[in-house]
C-alpha cells in the first residue's frame, strides 16, 4: 500500500477530528474544577461523631425501642437500625452472644439462645450497643451503582429512597452489617444519626432515650464538644479497624470478644 505525504496528513487530520467529536460529548472535570463547582451539603464545620461507653450500658434496650419508633422502622419486623448485643464470657474462654429482636425489649432472661450458663462459670458479661459507624471511607457508598447512597458534608451516610433500586450491594459491602432492606419501602435502610434531629440541634433518639449516658453524639471538629474531647483525650477504639473504613463511632471499654 502506497501513501503520499498529502494523503497521510489528510487522513491524520480527519482521524483526529473524528476522534474528538465523541470525546466532546463527555465532560471531564479536574479535581479542582469539581471542588469549585460543588457546595457542601451539611452544616459547615461539622463532623458528626458518636461515643458508645460499653461500661455504662445495662442492656435495657430503650435506645432500640426509641430508634424504631422515631424512624418508622416496623416495630415487630426483625430489622433495626441500632441494636444491643449481650456478651457473656465463661471461665473456659467461651463466649455466648445474643441480641433477641436487637435487644428491643431489653435482656430479662439469663438464658442465652435457650442455653443456661452456670453463674459461677461467668467471668465477665457486658452489653455492646451497635449502630452505623458513619465511616469516613464508607464501602457501602462506593459500591452503589446508581448514586442512591452518599456521604453528606458533615459526614453522615444517607440513602435516597426514591433513587435506590434495591440491588443490595451496599448491604453486602457493609462490614458491620448495619444495612438492611426496609420492609415497607423495599429499599436499603440504615441509621441516619437521626439526621432530622441533629440538624435541628437535638440529640439522636437513642442518645436521648439512654438513661445511663452510654451513648453520646457530638461534633468532632469542635474542640469544646464533649464527644470530641473524649475522642482526643481518652482511650477509645473502633470496630474492625483493619478494614480501613475509618469509623466515626468510638467505643469506650471495647472487649476483644466483640466483633
Amino acid at each position: 500500500m502506497s501513501c503520499s505525504r498529502r494523503k497521510f496528513l489528510k487522513s491524520t487530520l480527519k482521524g483526529t477530528l473524528a476522534a474528538s467529536v465523541p470525546l466532546s460529548a463527555f465532560r471531564f472535570l479536574s479535581p479542582a474544577e469539581s471542588r469549585a463547582a460543588t457546595e457542601s451539603t451539611g452544616t459547615p464545620g461539622t463532623r458528626w461523631g458518636f461515643i458508645v461507653d460499653t461500661n455504662k450500658c445495662v442492656g435495657c434496650g430503650f435506645c432500640v425501642k426509641a430508634c424504631k419508633k422515631e424512624n418508622e422502622v416496623p416495630y415487630d419486623a426483625p430489622v433495626t437500625r441500632t441494636w444491643v448485643e449481650r456478651y457473656v464470657v465463661t471461665r473456659d474462654g467461651k463466649d455466648y452472644i445474643d441480641s433477641p429482636m436487637g435487644g428491643r425489649d431489653g435482656f430479662t432472661d439469663p438464658k442465652i439462645r435457650g442455653e443456661e450458663i452456670p453463674p459461677e462459670e461467668i467471668t465477665k458479661a457486658f452489653f455492646v450497643p451497635k449502630l452505623c459507624n458513619q465511616c469516613e471511607n464508607p464501602p457501602c457508598v462506593q459500591v452503589c451503582p446508581v448514586g442512591a447512597t452518599y456521604q453528606t458534608g458533615d459526614g453522615v451516610v444517607l440513602v435516597d429512597r426514591s433513587w435506590c433500586i434495591g440491588c443490595g450491594y451496599c448491604i453486602m459491602a457493609c462490614p458491620y452489617g448495619v444495612r438492611f432492606f426496609h420492609p415497607v419501602y423495599r429499599v436499603a435502610e440504615k441509621c441516619t444519626f437521626c439526621y432530622h434531629r441533629i440538624s435541628k440541634g437535638m440529640k439522636t433518639a437513642c442518645v436521648d432515650a439512654c438513661p445511663f449516658g452510654a451513648r453520646q453524639i457530638g461534633n468532632l471538629l469542635d474542640p469544646e464538644d464533649p464527644v470530641a474531647q473524649i475522642v482526643q483525650t481518652q482511650r477509645v477504639a473502633v470496630l474492625k479497624d483493619e478494614y480501613g473504613t475509618k469509623p466515626q463511632v468510638f467505643y469506650i471499654g471495647l472487649d476483644k470478644n466483640v466483633r
Binding site: S34, A37, K69, G147, Y150, W163, T192, Y195, H196, D208
Partner: peptide
C-alpha cells in the same frame, strides 16, 4: 443530581434528598 461535596466517589447524589431527610418528622420531643 450530581457531585455535591468533596469527591465523586462519596458525594454523587440527588441534592434535595438531604432536605428530605432533614424534614423527617421528629417524634420524641423530650
Amino acid at each position: 443530581f450530581g457531585v455535591h461535596g468533596e469527591s465523586f466517589k462519596l458525594s454523587f447524589h440527588r441534592l434535595s434528598n438531604v432536605d428530605d431527610w432533614r424534614n423527617f418528622t421528629v417524634k420524641y420531643k423530650g
